[in-house]
Amino acid sequence: MILKMISFELYKIFKKWRTYIGFLALSIFIPILIYGVSEGGNHYQRILDRNMGDQFLIVGNLVNGWYVAFITIQAMIIHIPFFITLVAGDLFAGEGSAGTYRMLITRPIRRETIVVAKYIAGFIYALVFIVFFGLISTFPAIYFLGTGDLIVPLEKIIVIPSNEIYWRFLLAYFSSFISMCLVVSLAALFSSLVNNAIGPIVGTMAVIVIFLILGELPFELFEKISPYLFTKYMTVWIDSFDYPVDFSRILKSYAVLIGHGILFFAITLLNFRKKDILI
């Protein structure tokens, strides 16, 4: 039954227009980004050349497909949770607003099965979205801009040799998937509490944005609470581009994210088991 429920949930997800907003947005944004970088004459390379002065030369294809893929992830850090939330926020609330809870719950299915199926369907959607994101942000960029080492211009400047890039990107996308599973969990929790998807979408994004801002404020109080904000761990994907990769840090982030995900799931389950379907 659970498999049928999951396939049913997935069918519903992929029959809705809102599901494709994220795919559409990426399909528009990423080609523009690639075009901008290739036609814009390697803006970053030019800045770097200028900053190097006359005495130094930059060697290698710096602004390549991998670099674009990397800045795409960086650029989409806020947007991807939004696209995920658009769908996950509707998982339960969509049934409420459409009145289909009544159809669903009067069937001989345990409510726990419904919750599990909806969560798994949400995770699968997140996986599909991240895979799509990974494919669309790497393949066209590599096709147009080529490959080479990847420069990661963050707090540290890390240059990742080309032979290490594949597994690092795979790890980054997997980490993004884990983060997005948490977004699914949170949005689904909010979704199970109300009967309109707007609340969960806005609520989830508000939590993420507020936590990100709080975690960044350079005041002692906020620096102290920062480790307790799960959003701090949602950027775990970026650790894939550290040198050397701190796997213990990544695993710790996974543990925090999965732990929060389980907590949100448990609250949803407990609430939904006893929830009166009044609409």
Binding site: G99, T100, M103, P108
Partner: peptide
């Protein structure tokens, strides 16, 4: 029990 019951509760809402 619900396996043996068919129901319309209020208006039948569908997908």
């Amino acid at each position: 029990i619900l396996r043996k019951v068919g129901a319309i509760v209020e208006s039948p809402d569908f997908y």
